[in-house]
Structures are given as structure tokens and as C-alpha cells.
């Protein structure tokens, strides 16, 4: 199962920008180093340049003059995709409709003139690995979306590529299937130990799969880091707000206290220039009655989710605060609540 044949490759981009013939700048000059065997997720809204970057790595696009793509230190900038030995998985599956499932999976090996017996063995191995052995002789139009993406993965891996490139592979699937396949892809990438690049606009997918996440915005890298770093220490407001939920309070700092409309927060390390603080829903809680508190708000909406209650609390700001409460308490609209914020979760950007 761990057999990819080829040693995982390290990939480096230096000064890679991309301008399309119509003058659109899809990608600003970019430098990026991807370690061998690592799973890197390119995350961002549509039009942020993540797919363009993937296509430059794949060899489907060439960077503007001056840009370089290196595989294990070797310049492959002008090497077309068919000579780079990379596996690709597309959102639209892109399976060959004129071939069976087995024909699709064995295609890359047939191109490489591998003897028939070996192709057959490798195809059965792939079918078993993706748990689709019974579909071997089916036509593509007889498969469901989830089955098609399994075939596409098997087809890409069968040739033992040096890197696996996945372009929004789960976007076309329904939510439940997406979760199942995400788990499968995760364990697949771990067991193969292959260098993988995964493009998505779904932050939950990015957090779950990526060893590192490259957050992109307007053709630029906004931040590169481990999922935890990106979430807890976002470098820009864009990253902070694109990933997860962010609460925001405006006010001013004096004597180690941040004061806003709803009250004051004791924060000894507060930078004196801060006029806005950001924090995650898990860093704020509703205090028990009787507990001392500096912040007060009014419940604008409460949604009981079973294990917790999601509260929207009005504190006189443009946006209500989002709070996840696990208290065994029945909140209702208009309740006055005391709030406490963990200063360790406070960010100034």
C-alpha cells in the first residue's frame, strides 16, 4: 500500500508570476518551497490564484519569464506535463468515457508500454485499495460521483507519480460523501507518503488535510503555516476572517485594560495603539450569575445545537459576538449576559 515506486519529490517555485494573454494578472511573483512527502493545501476564494499555481506546478501553464519551477532542485519550468510524471485529480473527475473503470486506471501504464500482465496486477491492486473491485468492468456513465472520484484517484496513483495534484476534488460531491472521502484521501496521502498539493476553497477541508496551508488572496500568498498557526495566529485580517469565525470589538487601551462599548477587558500586555481586537468564539464564554465581569451584552439570537448553544450577543458593535456556550441553560432573546474573554486568545491585526 505504501508503494509509490518513486521517491517523493520536493517542489520549489521561485519568482513565479502569471499574466494571461488578455492582460489579467492571475498570480503575483511567488516563492514557495514544498518539502518531499508533505501535503500542502492551497486555500482561498475563487480567483485568488490557487488553481493557477497548481497548474504551473503541473506543467499545464508556464510562469511568466523569470519564474522557475524546480522538482528536487532540477529545473522543470519548460517541461510539459506529460514529461513531469505528476498525478492529477480534477473536480470534474475527467475520466475517459470511452474506457471502462479498469481501462481508465490502467491508461497511464499502457502509455508507458508496461506489459499487460503487470498492468492487470497494478489495476487490481488499485481497485482493491480504493474498494471498487466490483466496478472494474463498468462504464464511467454507470458510476456515482463518489465512485468516479475514487476511480480518478486510482488512475492518478497507478502510475506512481512523483507528486499528486488535486484540484478541488471533493467540491462536486454532497456534504456527507465529502466527509467520507476526505477521511479516505487523508489516510491515502499518509500511507503513500507522497508529495501532495491540494487546492480548495473549503477551510474545513484545508484544516483537516494540510500539513501546511498556503492561504491566497488576489494572486498573493497571505500566509503559509500549519493549520494551528493559521487559525490561532493569522497574519492578516483576510486570513483571520477567511478561516473560522472571528469576533471583533472596537475601543481603546489604557492602563492595561481594553475598553469598548460593552465594558472593559483586563489585558496587561495590550499594545497601547490597539483600537480593535479579534478573538475566536471558543475564547469567550458566558459567566455564571454572581461572577464578576467587565463585559455585558444582550442575547440577539440563540440556536440550541444539542451539545452546545450558539449565541449571537449584541454588545453595541456593528456585528454581534458569536459565542459557543456549553452551559446547561436555556437562553432566550433579550437575556442580559455577563461575558468573559481569555486574554490569551486576543489578537490585534
Amino acid at each position: 500500500m505504501t508503494d509509490t515506486g518513486n521517491k517523493p519529490v520536493s517542489i520549489a517555485l521561485t519568482n513565479c508570476s502569471k499574466t494571461f494573454p488578455d492582460g489579467t494578472r492571475a498570480l503575483e511573483p511567488l516563492d514557495l518551497a514544498i518539502h518531499a512527502g508533505e501535503t500542502v493545501v492551497f486555500l482561498g476564494p475563487s480567483g485568488c490564484g490557487k488553481t493557477t499555481t497548481l497548474r504551473i506546478i503541473a506543467g499545464l501553464e508556464e510562469p511568466d519569464a523569470g519564474g522557475k519551477v524546480l522538482f528536487d532542485g532540477v529545473d522543470v519550468t519548460h517541461l510539459p506535463i506529460e514529461q513531469r510524471n505528476v498525478g492529477m485529480v480534477f473536480q470534474s473527475y475527467a475520466l475517459f468515457p470511452n474506457m471502462t473503470v479498469a481501462g481508465n486506471i490502467g491508461y497511464g501504464l499502457k502509455i508507458r508500454k508496461v506489459p499487460d500482465a503487470q498492468i492487470k496486477a497494478r489495476v487490481s491492486e488499485m481497485l482493491a485499495m480504493m474498494q471498487i473491485t466490483r466496478l472494474a468492468d463498468r462504464r464511467i456513465d454507470q458510476l456515482s460521483g463518489g465512485q468516479r472520484q475514487r476511480v480518478a484517484l486510482a488512475r492518478a496513483i497507478a502510475v506512481r507519480p512523483r507528486a499528486l495534484l488535486l484540484d478541488e476534488p471533493l467540491t462536486a460531491l454532497d456534504a456527507k460523501l465529502r466527509d467520507t472521502l476526505r477521511l479516505e484521501i487523508d489516510s491515502l496521502l499518509r500511507s503513500l507518503g507522497i508529495t501532495a498539493i491540494y487546492v480548495t476553497h473549503d477551510q474545513a477541508e484545508a484544516m483537516a488535510l494540510g500539513d501546511r496551508i498556503v492561504v491566497m488572496e488576489h494572486g498573493r500568498v497571505a500566509q503559509i503555516g500549519k493549520p494551528r498557526e493559521i487559525y490561532q495566529r493569522p497574519a492578516t485580517r483576510f486570513v483571520a476572517e477567511f478561516i473560522g469565525t472571528m469576533n471583533r470589538l472596537t475601543g481603546s487601551v489604557s492602563n492595561g485594560t481594553f475598553t469598548c462599548k460593552a465594558g472593559g477587558i483586563a489585558w496587561p500586555e495590550a499594545p497601547s495603539s490597539a483600537t480593535e481586537i479579534l478573538f475566536r468564539p471558543e475564547d469567550i464564554r458566558v459567566v455564571e450569575s454572581g461572577e464578576a465581569t467587565g463585559l455585558k451584552g444582550t442575547v440577539a439570537a440563540a440556536f440550541f445545537l444539542g451539545d452546545r448553544t450558539r449565541l449571537f450577543v449584541d454588545v453595541g458593535e456593528a456585528q454581534p459576538l458569536v459565542i459557543e456556550s456549553t452551559a446547561r441553560r436555556d437562553f432566550s432573546h433579550g437575556d442580559r449576559v455577563g461575558l468573559a474573554i481569555d486574554p490569551r486568545g486576543l489578537l490585534v491585526l
Binding site: L60, N85, G87, N98, I111
Partner: peptide
């Protein structure tokens, strides 16, 4: 014709000639 099919074939090592034989001509058949 889905251009992604041609890209998929190329990623698997198909030369332009093979792409023609295996993807474009079957698609136009």
C-alpha cells in the same frame, strides 16, 4: 469536448498524438 480530459491524459504521460487518438477522436466519433 472537455479540456480537462485532455489534461488528464497528458498528466498520465500521453503525447499530443495519443491525446488525439484516445481523447479527441473518441469524443468526436
Amino acid at each position: 469536448l472537455d479540456p480537462k480530459l485532455e489534461e488528464a491524459a497528458r498528466s498520465l504521460g500521453a503525447s499530443p498524438w495519443r491525446v488525439l487518438l484516445d481523447v479527441i477522436i473518441p469524443g468526436l466519433k
